[in-house]
């Protein structure tokens, strides 16, 4: 499914990040989550997890799903965090600021493991296996 990705704060994301708990299970539970509407969730086959892939197809990240009334069909939301930023559009349109709101992404069901924040740094960014 093609979608526009919105990212932003949630109160618990803020509480855990500011409290230095980015490597906690709670942070992963709060942030490694893709919010979708019921209609899109059904169209995806009601998956527990989805793989979200960046517009250029180069980067992808597995996250859990959450059904919500707060987004409309074709739009998804991931709390501001390392998971969301793996797939955020890096082009800044000559402003310095990436497209944290409204990045085009694709979303598909997956069985991949949801990595924790430290694993993303070590495996995706630092290339350790």
């Amino acid at each position: 499914m093609e979608a526009l990705l919105n990212t932003g704060s949630t109160i618990d994301e803020g509480r855990l990040a500011k409290g230095g708990n980015k490597y906690s299970e709670d942070y992963k539970t709060e942030c490694a989550v893709c919010w979708v509407c019921a209609e899109d969730f059904a169209a995806l086959g009601c998956p527990e997890k989805v793989k979200v892939t960046s517009r250029d197809g180069v980067h992808s990240v597995a996250v859990s799903t959450k059904v919500t009334e707060s987004v409309k069909s074709g739009h998804v939301f991931i709390p501001r965090s390392i998971w969301a930023n793996v797939v955020v559009e890096p082009s800044t349109f000559s402003t310095g600021s990436p497209l944290y709101k409204g990045s085009p992404v694709s979303v598909e069901p997956t069985d991949d493991v949801v990595m924790d924040a430290e694993e993303i740094v070590l495996k995706l960014y630092m290339g350790e296996e």
Partner: peptide, 15 residues
């Protein structure tokens, strides 16, 4: 926490 907040291409190079 810059690595957390920037897109993957930039974060990867920073690392």
């Amino acid at each position: 926490d810059l690595v957390n907040h920037i897109p993957a291409d930039a974060a990867k190079y920073l690392a």
